[in-house]
Simulated assay, not measured.
Amino acid sequence: MATMLYSATMSLDGFIAGPGGDMSWLTEHLGPNPTVDALVGDIGALLVGNRTFRGDDPYRDTPQEGEPFGGGWSGPQFVLTHDVPAAPVPGVTFVTDFGAAVAAAKSAAGDKYVNVLGADVAAQCLDAGLLDEILVCVAPVMLGDGVRLFSHPGGDRVRLERIGLTHVPHATNIWMRVVR
């Protein structure tokens, strides 16, 4: 059965995107990361939020633009959206129902990871008790504003257990298990 993993690079002050969804800040923090490089081969499918799928790309104006993990991964992508585009996108399935999107991604992933991309979809997975692990690559920068890694108005405590901690020059990787 697939493991549901939320992964993101985050600023030290907790943002995965800058104001307006800006991802340009991330470009200088991309680079070799053995933890992420090893993970990519274990991902069977992506479950992606609409804002993340249609959003800013840190690989903009490069050959890797629009490619998951800068072109380091290929496979089935399931985008959760209320606005299915008229034209199909190769390798991407647009799904309007959360449960159906999760089921399709898990089925496609088999025994590998379903990598969740996007704060809103990750929060939905947490609320539904479906998220198993979280990998955060903390970049040495503070953005001051933007899209938070996790936000739950009124507060919501999520218990986590650290299962890995590694350092690379441009990030500190923290791998956590969601404690149920």
Rank of each mutant, 00 (worst) to 15 (best):
M1P: 13
M1D: 10
M1Q: 12
M1E: 12
A2H: 04
A2E: 04
A2L: 01
M4K: 01
M4I: 10
Y6P: 00
A8K: 00
T9W: 05
T9D: 05
M10F: 02
L12I: 09
L12V: 13
L12P: 01
L12C: 11
I16S: 04
I16M: 02
D22A: 04
D22V: 01
S24Y: 05
W25G: 07
L26Q: 03
L26C: 08
T27F: 08
T27V: 13
E28P: 13
E28R: 15
H29R: 12
H29S: 08
H29A: 06
H29M: 11
G31L: 12
P32E: 15
N33H: 09
A38C: 05
L39T: 14
L39P: 06
V40T: 15
G41W: 15
A45M: 11
L47I: 14
N50R: 15
N50D: 15
R51G: 10
R51D: 15
R51N: 15
G55Y: 11
D57S: 09
R60F: 15
D61I: 01
P63I: 06
E65C: 04
G66T: 09
G66R: 09
G70S: 15
G71R: 12
G71E: 13
G71K: 13
S74K: 08
S74D: 14
S74L: 04
G75R: 10
G75F: 05
P76T: 03
Q77D: 00
T81D: 03
H82I: 00
V84A: 07
V84T: 11
V84N: 08
P85Y: 10
P85T: 01
P85C: 09
A86K: 15
T93Y: 07
F94P: 00
T96F: 02
D97C: 03
F98R: 04
F98I: 08
A101F: 07
V102W: 01
A103E: 14
A104G: 06
A104K: 13
A105E: 12
A105D: 08
A109M: 02
G110V: 12
K112P: 00
Y113G: 01
V114P: 03
V114Q: 06
G118I: 13
A119S: 15
A119T: 01
A119G: 03
D120V: 15
V121T: 10
A122I: 09
A122E: 09
A123E: 14
A123Y: 00
A123V: 05
Q124T: 06
Q124A: 11
C125H: 02
C125I: 00
D127R: 09
D127P: 04
A128W: 07
L131P: 02
L131M: 07
L131K: 02
D132W: 05
E133V: 12
I134W: 04
I134P: 06
V136C: 11
V136T: 05
V138I: 13
V138A: 14
L143I: 06
L143D: 06
G144S: 08
D145I: 02
D145V: 02
D145E: 15
V147F: 03
R148G: 02
R148V: 09
R148I: 11
F150W: 12
S151M: 07
S151I: 11
P153W: 07
G154D: 09
G155A: 07
D156Q: 14
R159V: 00
L160P: 00
E161P: 00
E161D: 05
H167E: 14
P169Y: 02
P169N: 06
A171S: 12
A171K: 05
T172L: 11
N173D: 14
I174P: 00
W175Y: 14
M176D: 12
R180N: 07
R180T: 04
